[in-house]
Lab assay of single mutants.
Amino acid sequence: MEQATVKWFNAEKGFGFIERENGDDVFVHFSAIQGDGFKSLDEGQAVTFDVEEGQRGPQAANVQKA
């Protein structure tokens, strides 16, 4: 698992990007966020996640709020 920071997340559209420590951004979809209830992330929030290869490149999976 990697630890990184949420760059931005649009709760209405259900997706955003996580900024990795190496500077690369990773796409995150609300369905990858672990937990119950409304799944959203806040800008600047610390998260841990795995990286999977998606249809359009790397994307976050198993996202957990740190």
Rank of each mutant, 00 (worst) to 15 (best):
residue 28 V to C: 07
residue 31 S to M: 07
residue 43 E to F: 12
residue 16 G to F: 01
residue 5 T to R: 13
residue 33 I to L: 07
residue 62 N to P: 00
residue 34 Q to E: 09
residue 32 A to M: 05
residue 50 D to Y: 15
residue 48 T to C: 12
residue 7 K to M: 03
residue 45 Q to M: 11
residue 18 I to W: 01
residue 4 A to C: 06
residue 15 F to W: 15
residue 45 Q to P: 01
residue 57 G to F: 04
residue 57 G to P: 03
residue 29 H to K: 01
residue 66 A to I: 15
residue 15 F to N: 01
residue 28 V to A: 00
residue 24 D to S: 14
residue 28 V to Y: 04
residue 53 E to F: 14
residue 58 P to E: 06
residue 14 G to R: 00
residue 47 V to T: 04
residue 50 D to M: 14
residue 50 D to F: 15
residue 14 G to A: 05
residue 47 V to Q: 01
residue 63 V to P: 02
residue 62 N to L: 06
residue 27 F to G: 00
residue 33 I to C: 07
residue 35 G to E: 09
residue 44 G to K: 06
residue 55 Q to D: 12
residue 20 R to Y: 05
residue 41 L to Q: 05
residue 50 D to S: 14
residue 34 Q to W: 10
residue 59 Q to Y: 13
residue 59 Q to T: 07
residue 43 E to M: 14
residue 19 E to K: 15
residue 8 W to F: 07
residue 21 E to F: 10
residue 51 V to S: 03
residue 14 G to V: 04
residue 55 Q to Y: 14
residue 61 A to V: 14
residue 17 F to I: 07
residue 43 E to I: 15
residue 61 A to M: 11
residue 32 A to L: 00
residue 1 M to W: 11
residue 14 G to M: 00
residue 1 M to N: 12
residue 2 E to T: 11
residue 65 K to Q: 10
residue 47 V to D: 01
residue 2 E to V: 11
residue 13 K to I: 09
residue 19 E to A: 14
residue 16 G to H: 02
residue 46 A to H: 13
residue 54 G to R: 08
residue 62 N to S: 06
residue 43 E to N: 14
residue 41 L to S: 01
residue 64 Q to D: 06
residue 8 W to Q: 04
residue 8 W to M: 01
residue 47 V to G: 00
residue 41 L to E: 01
residue 61 A to E: 06
residue 11 A to T: 12
residue 12 E to V: 13
residue 47 V to C: 05
residue 17 F to V: 07
residue 4 A to G: 15
residue 21 E to M: 11
residue 35 G to P: 02
residue 2 E to W: 14
residue 37 G to L: 06
residue 23 G to M: 10
residue 25 D to F: 12
residue 13 K to Q: 08
residue 27 F to W: 06
residue 66 A to C: 13
residue 2 E to F: 15
residue 58 P to H: 07
residue 9 F to W: 15
residue 51 V to I: 14
residue 11 A to H: 12
residue 46 A to P: 11
residue 39 K to P: 07
residue 22 N to A: 09
residue 41 L to C: 05
residue 3 Q to P: 08
residue 53 E to N: 12
residue 15 F to S: 01
residue 20 R to F: 07
residue 45 Q to L: 07
residue 45 Q to D: 13
residue 20 R to D: 04
residue 52 E to T: 12
residue 32 A to P: 01
residue 4 A to P: 03
residue 55 Q to G: 10
residue 24 D to F: 10
residue 22 N to C: 13
residue 21 E to C: 13
residue 15 F to H: 06
residue 33 I to V: 06
residue 15 F to G: 00
residue 62 N to Y: 06
residue 1 M to Y: 11
residue 29 H to M: 05
residue 34 Q to C: 12
residue 58 P to F: 10
residue 9 F to L: 01
residue 11 A to C: 14
residue 37 G to I: 06
residue 63 V to T: 03
residue 6 V to A: 01
residue 26 V to I: 13
residue 36 D to K: 12
residue 36 D to Q: 12
residue 31 S to C: 07
residue 42 D to W: 15
residue 49 F to A: 04
residue 30 F to Y: 13
residue 29 H to R: 01
residue 50 D to W: 15
residue 51 V to F: 09
residue 56 R to N: 11
residue 18 I to N: 01
residue 4 A to W: 05
residue 11 A to D: 07
residue 63 V to Q: 04
residue 3 Q to C: 15
residue 34 Q to M: 13
residue 6 V to I: 10
residue 47 V to N: 03
residue 6 V to G: 03
residue 3 Q to F: 15
residue 46 A to R: 14
residue 27 F to V: 01
residue 66 A to W: 12
residue 41 L to T: 02
residue 18 I to Q: 03
residue 3 Q to D: 06
residue 7 K to R: 08
residue 39 K to H: 07
residue 11 A to I: 11
residue 5 T to E: 05
residue 4 A to N: 04
residue 52 E to F: 13
residue 35 G to S: 09
residue 41 L to H: 00
residue 16 G to L: 03
residue 54 G to E: 04
residue 38 F to R: 08
residue 25 D to N: 12
residue 23 G to K: 10
residue 35 G to D: 09
residue 16 G to R: 00
residue 16 G to C: 07
residue 25 D to E: 10
residue 19 E to F: 13
residue 63 V to H: 01
residue 18 I to D: 03
residue 6 V to C: 07
residue 30 F to E: 04
residue 54 G to P: 03
residue 59 Q to C: 07
residue 7 K to T: 04
residue 38 F to K: 09
residue 47 V to S: 00
residue 38 F to N: 08
residue 6 V to Y: 01
residue 13 K to C: 09
residue 51 V to Y: 10
residue 9 F to K: 00
residue 44 G to M: 04
residue 24 D to N: 12
residue 13 K to F: 10
residue 24 D to T: 14
residue 44 G to V: 02
residue 66 A to N: 12
residue 40 S to F: 14
residue 23 G to A: 09
residue 61 A to H: 09
residue 15 F to D: 03
residue 23 G to T: 05
residue 66 A to H: 13
residue 14 G to N: 01
residue 22 N to Y: 11
residue 7 K to I: 05
residue 49 F to N: 01
residue 9 F to I: 02
residue 22 N to P: 09
residue 26 V to Q: 01
residue 21 E to Q: 13
residue 66 A to Y: 13
residue 24 D to W: 08
residue 52 E to W: 10
residue 48 T to N: 07
residue 12 E to L: 14
residue 45 Q to K: 02
residue 16 G to V: 03
residue 12 E to C: 15
residue 40 S to W: 15
residue 61 A to N: 08
residue 16 G to P: 00
residue 36 D to G: 11
residue 31 S to P: 01
residue 57 G to K: 03
residue 14 G to P: 00
residue 25 D to R: 11
residue 61 A to Y: 09
residue 53 E to W: 15
residue 46 A to V: 14
residue 7 K to G: 04
residue 57 G to T: 03
residue 59 Q to D: 02
residue 65 K to E: 07
residue 57 G to D: 02
residue 25 D to H: 14
residue 60 A to S: 03
residue 65 K to C: 09
residue 45 Q to I: 08
residue 55 Q to H: 13
residue 17 F to S: 00
residue 29 H to D: 02
residue 56 R to E: 06
residue 14 G to Q: 02
residue 33 I to T: 02
residue 14 G to F: 01
residue 25 D to M: 15
residue 19 E to S: 15
residue 22 N to M: 09
residue 10 N to V: 03
residue 37 G to F: 06
residue 7 K to W: 02
residue 30 F to L: 05
residue 14 G to I: 01
residue 2 E to L: 14
residue 46 A to C: 15
residue 29 H to I: 05
residue 20 R to Q: 07
residue 31 S to N: 07
residue 26 V to M: 07
residue 38 F to V: 09
residue 56 R to T: 08
residue 55 Q to T: 12
residue 19 E to D: 07
residue 11 A to Q: 11
residue 52 E to I: 15
residue 54 G to L: 06
residue 13 K to N: 05
residue 10 N to H: 07
residue 18 I to E: 00
residue 9 F to Y: 10
residue 60 A to I: 01
residue 16 G to I: 04
residue 7 K to L: 05
residue 39 K to C: 09
residue 32 A to F: 05
residue 28 V to I: 08
residue 12 E to N: 12
residue 49 F to I: 05
residue 21 E to I: 11
residue 37 G to P: 06
residue 21 E to V: 12
residue 25 D to A: 10
residue 39 K to G: 06
residue 20 R to N: 06
residue 48 T to I: 12
residue 10 N to W: 09
residue 59 Q to P: 07
residue 58 P to C: 08
residue 23 G to R: 08
residue 3 Q to K: 14
residue 61 A to G: 08
residue 20 R to W: 07
residue 37 G to H: 07
residue 56 R to Q: 10
residue 11 A to F: 09
residue 48 T to P: 02
residue 60 A to D: 03
residue 28 V to L: 08
residue 65 K to F: 11
residue 26 V to S: 00
residue 7 K to P: 03
residue 4 A to R: 00
residue 13 K to H: 09
residue 3 Q to E: 11
residue 49 F to C: 06
residue 62 N to T: 06
residue 57 G to E: 02
residue 48 T to H: 09
residue 36 D to P: 11
residue 13 K to E: 04
residue 13 K to T: 07
residue 66 A to E: 11
residue 52 E to R: 10
residue 62 N to F: 08
residue 17 F to L: 05
